[in-house]
């Protein structure tokens, strides 16, 4: 189970604290059991319902005003000369 929790941490990029790892490990088991109920059904001839709305819409190729730099950066914690500062992309 801890393997699974580790895998899930990596997939979702969430670092759990130790106490959380244990709890979530147990919860995940229970919840997956709860999910497995649908496997009681024979669904081989059923079409999945992907979208409740059958048809989407398009938009015209006409430019509209965008956010100012100030607005775009208004919630950014780290910025430099108008750029948003992000973490390094090196290593794993």
């Amino acid at each position: 189970m801890s393997d699974l929790v580790d895998k899930l941490q990596r997939l979702s990029l969430i670092d759990l604290k130790e106490e959380e790892k244990e709890r979530i490990g147990r919860d995940v088991q229970k919840i997956l059991q709860f999910f497995n109920k649908i496997n009681e059904l024979d669904l081989s001839n059923v079409e999945p319902l992907f979208h409740p709305i059958s048809q989407g819409k398009l938009r015209k190729d006409v430019a509209q005003s965008s956010l100012t730099q100030g607005e775009a950066l208004s919630n950014v914690k780290r910025k430099e000369n108008g750029f948003i500062v992000g973490p390094s992309t090196y290593g794993d």
Binding site: V5, L8, Q9, L11, S12, L13, I14, D15, L16, K17, E20, R23, I24, D27, V28, I31, L32, G86, P87, S88, T89, Y90, G91, D92
Partner: peptide, 26 residues
């Protein structure tokens, strides 16, 4: 790096139920 940074921010920023649902969803 981005994986470490994102993981820590998300680990801190989200509550337990949210983390549960994100992980199960993934």
């Amino acid at each position: 790096n981005w994986k470490e940074t994102f993981s820590k921010n998300r680990g801190d920023g989200f509550g337990l139920e949210v983390k549960r649902r994100i992980m199960l969803g993934s």
